[in-house]
Design a protein around this nucleic acid. Structure first.
Lengths: 263, 263
DNA sequence: GAGTGGTCTAGACCACCGC
DNA sequence: CGGTGGTCTAGACCACTCG
């Protein structure tokens, strides 16, 4: 046993309350965190200390930790303790991130922005191959059966933040630089324009949800972190959909920003 | 005890595996759901049945349910069972939802869309009052100290889906129809334009995170459902920020859609 | 080795649901 | 009423971290 809790840091249980004991304990801890009594990255009292303080069983304490973990407030480290989750640096995506002027500078959107925030960007899990299009992708690309798929994972300072798959019709992409792992300066959008598909606009659909186990793995997501799912379709000036990009982002690493005209 | 599980529905545990038993059980259930062996709204085997089937203690089974609940895959109903969570109808927000032509038809954005999807829209918790601006809001509105705040909750077919607070500078809103609970046809944006603040554009910032306990309550969120947080700033043609709207949406009820120019 | 969280057991009593 | 999930206890053994 270690030192006992400083009194007054956490309140006492209310035995007359209907609220379950583990919820009351979670309330105490949540409030203490909100009030800054525990700061980002700081260690909470250990399970054993809370068992002593509240006079409850260990499972009850663990149950309240589990609540807070699900809320994304804290995270446990085996053998070390339970800590207040720090808010990671955030990547801001502006709505002009695909503007032609950026492409013409020869850098991809991801690299441009990472530079701006002073982080070190990396791309891995690169995979380019032809495959059968799922029904959703196929519909958006104009009922194509097979597509070129470009998969890659983006990391910032070594931390995975985003996984993306681009799908392109074979009649556009096959045999071009788009079908190579490194598509060259300005990325695939620059290549599409060189191929005569002058880009007109993008449609983006945004959803948020809890990640699948696979996504937890590839993005190394902490419990209680949702993902933002972004489905972007690129159209050329002839109104043809020339690419669909399916992106999954760690929600705690992103702020998406859009400008809407009022007219 | 009720009827035993149909054999083969769920596999057996792998005692040689390093994977914790409750995770293996969760894997089995998740896979069965993915394969459609349990459909939306359908009941999973009861805790007692799974205890029998796997020969584990009840807490172990509950632990695996807890995993799936956190993933937003299932939800428990006291006294009834654990059910596959149905995907609720979704509200699509298009990027032209604040276009002037819609305002001029006299309906608010929320009502227009709800009509389009055939759902019955409601607004409640209406509250309009003057208050001190938080630092974030103040900064966006040009360092105003006090603001008019308009709070309201949106429901679709009786289900709460969104909670929003609009903040407006007092020198614009005080004493106008904007300060009244019902701002009239076309909403506050129509009133702003009548007051000479012709709207030019909106900036929207989108985040996703797990909800606070308060948000769980006001939006009646099921466990494992994140929220989308949207902060919109409205600018008039003189580049003045005339409104900031802070919106929290149930993520399972929304798809946000934006159109970006490629230029 | 002492302290931490991770997993699991085998019970208990309760509250809610539907018949 | 029996079946369901909700809460809680009092242990046990393990794996990880750090001094």
């Amino acid at each position: 046993m270690s030192t006992s809790l400083s009194p007054g840091l956490l309140g006492d249980l209310d035995p007359t309350s209907d609220r379950a004991v583990f919820r009351q304990i979670a309330d105490h801890l949540r409030e203490a965190i909100d009030r800054g009594r525990f700061r980002e990255g700081e260690k909470l009292p250990s399970e054993a200390e809370l068992v002593d303080h509240y006079g409850v069983s260990r499972m009850t304490v663990r149950n309240s930790f589990s609540l807070l973990t699900g809320e994304g407030l804290v995270h446990a480290e085996h053998g070390k303790g339970v800590f207040v989750r720090p808010r990671p640096p955030v990547r801001r995506l502006a709505s002009d991130r695909f503007a032609r002027r950026h492409r013409e500078q020869g850098k991809s959107a991801f690299l441009v922005e990472a530079d701006a925030t002073g982080s070190h960007p990396t791309v891995d899990s690169l995979e380019v191959k032809e495959e059968k299009a799922g029904p959703d992708i196929s519909a958006r690309l104009g009922s194509v059966r097979r597509v070129l798929a470009r998969r890659r994972r983006y990391l910032l300072d070594g931390r995975p933040v985003e996984f993306a798959v681009s799908y392109l019709p074979l009649d556009i992409a096959r045999g071009t630089r788009i079908a190579e792992p490194n598509p060259g300066p300005g990325g695939i959008y620059a290549r599409l324009e060189e191929l005569g598909h002058r880009l007109d606009h993008f449609d983006e659909e945004i959803r948020a949800r809890m990640p699948s186990p696979t996504e937890v793995k590839t993005l190394q997501l902490a419990p209680g972190v949702p993902v933002i799912s972004l489905l972007r379709t690129a159209y050329d000036t002839e109104e043809r959909a020339v690419e669909v990009c399916d992106t999954v982002m760690a929600a705690d690493a992103y702020v998406l920003s859009y400008r809407l005209p009022a007219t």
